[in-house]
């Protein structure tokens, strides 16, 4: 296993959701950092803030030494310049595009030097090669999940954000996705920030667990 020796996720922010304010502090090492805790405590908001979809009230966010947000220094990179591989809980595959075009959506936007993976490689790795010509609405939950992961990987991310990657899956599929996330960490050396409320399952997977 080759982990990034530098601290991966350095998050210290105050998030607003409605009238409530959540302070969130995460100091992850390399590998997989899991955010756990009861729902409604701002776990998904934290991922949104790291991806640039939610602006924190204050604080800073850095990943692998790159500052993505710093209220004091007036830094707030737009989402498209953060290189986050975000696997949403609701997946958000593009309904008007084939599986192949979904997978290549971020790849086509990426600068050539960030296109470190090829479609065939990722499709083989995730076992979705037979699905490439299909539309997202014809996929099973597990298939759609793997396509969403593949789309994030192909966009040339510097880190991965995964929101409850196990909840939509039946128990048999969960084992497969857990193994897959471990393989992604080891094969691509990407820091992963993962949200889950299923303590036991993520505890096995994570290199660090942060309670929110």
């Amino acid at each position: 296993m080759s982990f990034d020796p530098a601290p991966s996720f350095d998050i210290d922010v105050v998030l607003a959701r409605g009238q409530l304010e959540f302070p969130v502090r995460v100091a992850g090492g390399g590998g997989i950092t899991a955010l756990v805790g009861p729902s409604g405590q701002g776990k998904t908001s934290t991922l949104d803030a790291v991806a640039g979809l939610l602006r924190p009230l204050s604080g800073h966010i850095a990943v692998g030494g790159t500052v993505l947000f710093d209220a004091a220094r007036g830094i707030d990179l737009p989402p498209e310049r953060r290189a986050a591989g975000y696997v949403f809980q609701d997946l958000r595959l593009f309904p008007h595009l084939s599986v192949a075009d979904n997978l290549l959506f971020g790849w086509r936007q990426a600068a050539p030097e960030r296109r470190t993976l090829a479609l065939d490689e990722v499709a083989g790795f995730l076992d979705i090669a037979p699905l490439l010509a299909r539309r997202p609405h014809t996929l099973s939950g597990g298939e759609a999940q793997r396509v969403a992961i593949g789309r994030a990987l192909l966009s040339g991310p510097r880190f991965l954000l995964m929101d409850e990657p196990l909840t939509a899956l039946d128990p048999a599929r969960r084992e497969g996705v857990i193994a897959l996330i471990a393989r992604i960490r080891d094969a691509f050396a990407l820091p992963v920030l993962l949200v889950s409320h299923q303590q036991d399952e993520v505890a096995r997977l994570a290199d660090a667990v942060v309670e929110i």
């Binding site: 498209e80 958000r92 593009f94 959506f105 966009s155």
Partner: peptide, 21 residues
Amino acid sequence: DPRLEQAARTLGAGPWATFWR
């Protein structure tokens, strides 16, 4: 669905690319 537009942004598409694609 604005969530699809958000997804496009995280995949590296700026506001214009998100609009067109």
